[in-house]
Amino acid sequence: MKHLRFLWTGAAAGLLNGLFGAGGGMVTVPMLEKDGLPAQQAHATSLAVIAPLSVLSGGCYLWQGRMTFGDAWGFLLPGLVGAVLGGWLLPRLKALWLHRIFGILILIAAGRLLLS
């Protein structure tokens, strides 16, 4: 039964990853936590699910000519710097306010995309 849940979770994560190029972690993290994994282990294990799926999805997108490495290249270094800075800033920020600001910004962005 537990294995069946893992299979469903993996299938949903794969579909989201291929369809949107994002969103798999939204499925895997809560499911792994529901299975009793502490938050850190759930997030770490979620990466073990999403990373190979992202390699596959990225490969498919490249093969179909949806984008090139050149399109992504400019974002890689700032992204890594951002991740390091994010880790540094994390203990210095109030997470709850970030969640609220992020939520509002995401809803505004959703509105723009829906109306465009």
């Binding site: 979770t9 994560a13 794969g14 291929g18 369809l19 799926l53 999805s57």
Partner: peptide, 26 residues
């Protein structure tokens, strides 16, 4: 921190659905 067995089981189930998702996106 990584539970490889469970993680890779999930990933294996996700592989065919990645193709479905990429096809659906197109």
């Amino acid at each position: 921190l990584v539970q490889w067995k469970n993680g890779l089981l999930c990933a294996a189930a996700g592989i065919p659905m990645v193709f479905a998702g990429v096809w659906l996106a197109g």
